[in-house]
Nucleic acid binder design. Structure first.
Length: 798
RNA sequence: GGGCGAGUGGCGGAACUGGUAGACGCGCUAGACUCAAAAUCUUGUGGCCUUCGGGCCGUGAGGGUUCAAGUCCCUCCUCGCCCACCA
């Protein structure tokens, strides 16, 4: 007997990890004619704390699927990489005086080491790191492609600014009016910034969401985020009386904004507003007869040209206050404040003179930043009208065609990508002496991030790169627009770096040819491997997952990608919380370290299997240390079966086939928890009736996606390969069936009948009525009987 | 305020397109082994009642549809997430 041979996970795991390290069985190569399967997780940001249990859930889902398809002999690619640019590494570097590069290198090495201890089937030759020059060279290349097509552009406007991190943020990075990194309230600051024109693809991004094999939750969030509204733009002519016209010739620098940036609007903005008219956006142009006033946002560009002299002071004051208000204050205070500008427009439908107001319930970033107020139809307009004594006129709906032009707008704004921080991908742009931007030529890429001494950003609104004086100077060829001749001219580099989301917007394509020196991705490799078949994550529902779709569509349009959606199937899993159900956090001291779980003696297989068993993949779950022990006992029982007396395997043929079917179907459906439960049931059965060799081979194969070390050991000892087993339906049907008999819908007894009798309804019902237990209930007669063959059920109504 | 989910034993959770509620695991119970403990193996385990045959109740609350409802419909309560003055 095998009393001497105990399950020692740490020994077994070390053995197999060494074999996998040396033999590289998970190296992925193009094999024409063999169906491919490309599976990846959202790559981690390697923090100093190392892997946490959330990473383990994420990576193990990917690994279980990888092995599942690998065992079915598909050509599987499962790469791995690190998202390394960003604030945490830089802030840590500032705090400790070490370089972000060194800190990141250490964290990456630690993550790699820890991931290897979990036994993942990773093709380690495809490892990527977004802060390595070999990688960010191509991030810069991507930027230049967008720039060439006019989809990377500069604009001066009010932006979210985090005063702690000293950088601007994208809309998607502001959560409840606070910075997503440090949690500090954000402010508005007027700055010239780089944007990607994601709105160019708004319609396609929206229209193609429905067809994706993604969770509905994410699809809905993306749709809401894009927020398409169909309506019209209507121009209202400003009434030109002498006072307001005169003042428009001498605009006054207004309010607090002037201390941050010059107030003169840029060319792009001054086109859309003039002192002659105001254009509004509305989804209800048919209510124009009820428009009794106009409202513009406090930030409305060119507001100073509109305001009447006697109202100027009040408007300036209101505008300054509105800009000072934090986003939280503006959200919380739903009172309809505002001031009259002293100016009027003509309602083109009624021809009446109606007043222009300024109010912060109108948002500058949406539509035109100006609305026509129809208090009879719109609740917010009515509140405003009541608060400020403005007229409410019932409106007849009308054909608006003669007053405006159809227009579609989106809630989604263009993606702000410049960051005033050091530790990011340098934007490959330089400015001539007149301040005009020029792209760095592709053959000069990468624009290397220079090593500097002091990473700290300052009040200047420029990143620490501004201090790298030598690096700033660059000579690039620029074509003179007049002569058409190209000349080398001295330029100054852009000091902003790219939002980290830019780096992660194309990494799934880099994985297909991670060492390619000529392309961002190899065209042949991309057409074989991409798009990604299964992508697994727990975050970034609208940011990353929208950006990557945007880049995919853009690069498809440029002929670089043969598909328009980057991810076929998305698995969005829940978080793992502390045993008390609260979020794990260092400050609460309730963090479970996965490496501790392994080193405590449970091993990686237990950790992995437990996290798959913990609950439905899409739901949050609470860590339960005692259940970890339960999974360990299960694996231990599997191992001990190896040493048991073997019986004739044909005895278990039904349960074996049933288990193969259940586990296979459950993994396809990502029901990992019930797949593990089915394996536990199978093992319980084997303990009762004994196990044959074939029973154990099937067990090891089915369990391998979850516990690869233990099962590799089992299969080696059993002398079997790991090819995924198939079930045969013929073993699932038995000669007899159990028929449930109900009286008035309540279970009263069960009959065992011949399978062939299931076809004979009369016979079954007669058998049921003859049963002694049933006769107790039928003495007063029977109203009706129902037989459901599919459910193997009889219901007798008395 | 709007949108989307979810409420099942002491706990985490099962239950296919309406058809045997509580799979599997944890915890607890009893036993075997042991001087003893751990480990391991074997029992039992929704609640209440029981003459030990079984009976009644039971999936957040209340109504409805149905031979039959955790599952469908209506009203309400609680929790979670997302969006939040988007004209």
């Amino acid at each position: 007997m095998g009393g001497m041979d105990r399950y020692e996970p740490l020994k077994i795991e070390e053995k197999w990890q060494k074999i996998w390290e040396e033999e590289k069985p998970y190296k992925a190569e193009t094999v024409e004619g063999v169906p491919k399967m490309y599976i990846a997780e959202m790559f981690p940001y390697p923090s100093g704390a190392g892997l946490h249990v959330g990473h383990v859930r994420n990576f193990t889902i990917v690994d279980a699927l990888t092995r599942f398809y690998e065992q079915q002999r598909l050509n599987v690619m499962r790469p791995f990489g690190y998202d390394t640019f960003g604030l945490p590494a830089e802030n840590y570097a500032i705090k400790t005086g070490r370089s972000p590069k060194d800190v990141t290198a250490e964290n990456v090495a630690n993550f790699r080491k820890q991931a290897k201890r979990l036994g993942y089937a990773i093709d380690w030759d495809r490892e990527i790191n977004t802060s390595s020059p070999e990688y960010y060279k191509w991030t810069q290349w991507c930027f230049l492609q967008l720039y060439k097509k006019g989809l990377a552009y500069q604009k001066e406007s009010y932006q979210w600014w985090c005063p702690v991190d000293q950088t601007v943020l994208a809309n998607e990075q502001v959560e409840n009016g606070c910075c997503w990194r440090c949690g500090h309230e954000v402010e508005k600051k007027k700055m010239k910034q780089w944007f990607f024109k994601i709105t160019e693809y708004a319609d396609e991004l929206l229209d193609e969401v429905d067809a994706l094999d993604w969770p509905d939750k994410i699809k809905t969030m993306q749709k809401n985020w894009i927020g398409r509204s169909v309506g019209a733009e209507i121009e209202f002519a400003i009434v030109q009386d002498s006072s307001s016209f005169a003042s428009s010739l001498a605009p006054v620098v207004m309010g607090l904004a002037s201390s941050i940036a010059p107030v003169v609007a840029n060319a792009h903005e001054s086109e859309s507003c003039s002192n002659r008219s105001i254009t509004v956006f509305t989804t209800r142009p048919d209510t124009i007869f009820g428009a009794t006033f106009l409202v513009v946002a406090p930030e409305y560009p060119g507001l100073e040209y509109i305001v009447a002299d006697d109202a100027r002071e009040a408007v300036e004051k209101y505008r300054a206050e509105a800009l000072l208000k934090s986003e939280i204050e503006r959200q919380e205070n739903k009172e309809k404040t505002g001031v009259f500008t002293g100016a009027y427009v003509i309602n083109p439908a009624t021809k009446e003179k109606i007043p222009i107001w300024v109010a912060d319930y109108v948002l500058s970033g949406y539509g035109t930043g100006a609305i026509m107020a129809v208090p009879a139809m719109d609740e917010r307009d009515r509140e405003f009208a009541e608060a400020h004594d403005l007229p409410v006129v019932e409106t007849e709906l009308c054909e608006f065609g003669q007053f405006g032009t159809p227009k579609t707008t989106y809630r989604m704004r263009d993606w702000l990508i410049s960051r005033q921080r050091y530790w990011g991908c340098p934007i490959p742009i330089a400015y001539d002496k007149d301040g005009n931007p020029h792209p760095i030529p592709e053959d000069q890429l990468p624009v290397m991030l220079p090593e500097i001494e002091d990473y700290k950003p300052d009040e200047s609104g420029r990143s620490a790169l501004a201090k790298a004086k030598d690096w700033l100077k660059v000579k690039i060829p620029v074509k003179d627009p007049k002569t058409g001749k190209t000349q080398m001219i001295e330029c100054t580099r852009e000091t902003d770096t790219l939002d980290g989301y830019a780096c992660s917007s194309w990494y799934l394509w880099r994985y297909v040819s991670p060492h390619d020196k000529k392309h961002a991705w190899d065209p042949e490799a991309i057409s074989y491997w991409a798009p990604t078949d299964i992508y697994v994550g727990a975050d970034h529902a609208v940011a990353h997952l929208l950006y990557i779709r945007f880049w995919c569509k853009f690069f498809a349009d440029q002929g670089y990608l043969p598909f328009r959606e980057p991810i076929k199937k998305l698995i969005y899993h829940g978080y793992i919380n502390a045993p008390d159900g609260k979020k794990m956090s260092k400050s609460k001291g309730n963090v479970i370290d996965p490496l501790d779980v392994i080193n405590d003696g449970y091993g990686a297989d237990t950790l992995r299997t437990y996290e798959m068993f913990i609950g439905p993949v899409e739901l949050d779950a609470a860590w339960d240390p005692r259940s970890v022990g339960g999974v360990y006992r299960f694996l231990n029982r599997c191992y001990n079966l190896l040493n048991s007396e073997k019986i004739d395997g044909s005895k278990n043929i039904t349960i074996r086939n049933k288990t193969i079917k259940k586990v296979t179907e459950d993994i396809y459906k990502c029901n990992f928890n019930t797949a593990v439960a089915a394996l536990m049931e199978y093992v319980n059965e084997l303990y009762k009736v004994g196990a044959g060799e074939e029973d154990l081979i099937v067990l090891a194969k089915l369990l391998k996606p979850f516990a690869p070390h233990l099962t590799s050991e089992m299969l080696e000892r059993l002398g079997a390969d790991d090819e995924w087993p198939k079930w045969d339906e013929k073993y699932l049907v038995s000669d007899t069936a159990e028929v449930v008999v109900q009286v008035n819908g309540k279970l009263r007894t069960k009959l065992t009948v011949e399978m062939t009798d299931l076809e004979d309804e009369d016979k079954i019902i007669k058998m049921a009525l003859k049963d002694k237990k049933i006769q107790k209930y039928t003495s007063d007669g029977i109203k009706k009987t129902i037989f459901v063959k599919k459910a193997k059920l009889v219901n007798i109504v008395v």
